[in-house]
Design a protein around this nucleic acid. Structure first.
Lengths: 216, 216
DNA sequence: GCGAATTTTGCATGTCGTGCATCTTTGCAT
DNA sequence: ATGCAAAGATGCACGACATGCAAAATTCGC
């Protein structure tokens, strides 16, 4: 992990930029925070900011670079007795429980995104990229003997990788990501009323039973 | 619909801007098209462009302002014998079949979005707003006698409206929107291999049966 | 036609984002 | 430790995006 001094300083600078951005946004509103202010608070030049983030907004999106890989590993390691939906549910639940531990900056970050729908959209969009990889993991779980799609099409562009995927894995991955989003959204809206994990389980139960009309 | 000359000219200007933008983007790539070029092609000033669209990218997002209302009306008018999922499936299928008629600019627009993931994300994000209204329509269908949520909370902000919604309608609406997206995506990826309506029906069948593991 | 309302437009201003040349820091071999 | 090569940081210039404001043009109701 912590390679040389170079890598460590890069991570530190990136973390300083995101933290400065989130704190400034929480105080003055996300749209009122300029790149110059963020860079100054982090102790670097404006130009350096753009060396780390292509766009000003990118500093606010939840990264989850490791998160996707964690979920995919957990999915492939899940007991074979579980249905794909159950395995995905458990893999996501484990990751979300871990993310809930962060609390401090995570919560602040959540508030900033909630106050700025524009940035929330970008964050959701960032997770759509994960969706394709998640679909590939689902496909591999369904046929453990076959050559992984990721390897077969690693040299091809995203377009090709998406073409190679079947309908079911893509639907399952997309629905699961949607389920996480709805669960988080509903839980935030009725905060403290119910535990997040309860809402999350309800959602997946509804999905597993075919979304039947609820009792009146 | 066509009120005075004013309204008609506004619609014409807006349409001219989007069409100019899409054609220029299809030719030179979406990211290489400046607001100045779009405005010039549409025969208006740059400042006027920003009177119609808050952001340069907004000119590329599929609007569907009427689409959402159509689907909600169809959903509420559907036979009571249909389950919520079935009613929503049929309402969406009808609207999509109509949209398929456009063909000309619709197809070009689709190519532009496919080539620019950034804009595709924005378009999907724009449909997330519809999702809340769709969820309200689902909620109303489930209890036809109750006061419509939209009327009860029309004076409240979006935040309040979202809090008033139950979990099930939100999940159903979100899953349905996701289903449309996955269907379109999969159909585009394996173009001409299957009819869109077939893919669409398959997706909703999978959802209705609880996303079971497919046969090997 | 005529005044009021609305829309379009140009201009000024500030922020975003990128390419390039230069300077500093880090990693590594001697 | 010392010097060299690689990589990151910085400043500067420049074009595009976005907004506010006031003046000019267009449309509406009469």
């Amino acid at each position: 992990m912590g390679d040389g001094l170079r890598e460590r300083k890069k991570r530190a600078t990136r973390a300083a930029l995101t933290e400065a951005a989130v704190r400034l946004a929480a105080e003055h509103g996300a749209e009122k925070v300029t790149v110059e202010a963020i860079s100054a608070a982090a102790g670097v030049s404006v130009r350096t900011f753009f060396n780390y983030f292509d766009t000003r907004d990118d500093v606010f999106v939840l990264t989850g670079a490791e998160t996707g890989a964690h979920v995919r590993r957990a999915l492939l390691a899940a007991p074979a007795a579980l249905s794909p939906l159950e395995a995905l549910r458990d893999a996501l639940a484990a990751e979300l429980a871990e993310a809930e531990q962060q609390h401090e900056l995570w919560r602040l970050h959540g508030e900033v995104l909630r106050a700025a729908p524009h940035l929330l959209v970008r964050t959701i969009g960032a997770h759509l990229a994960d969706e394709t990889e998640l679909a590939e993991a689902v496909a591999e779980r369904l046929r453990p003997g076959a050559v992984p799609l990721a390897a077969a099409a690693s040299a091809a562009c995203d377009e090709e990788r998406r073409k190679a995927l079947e309908l079911y894995p893509r639907l399952l991955a997309a629905v699961a990501v949607t389920a996480v989003r709805v669960s988080l959204d509903h839980w935030c809206a009725r905060q403290e009323e119910r535990a997040f994990s309860d809402v999350f389980q309800d959602v997946f139960t509804l999905l597993a039973t075919g979304l039947p009309a609820p009792p009146a």
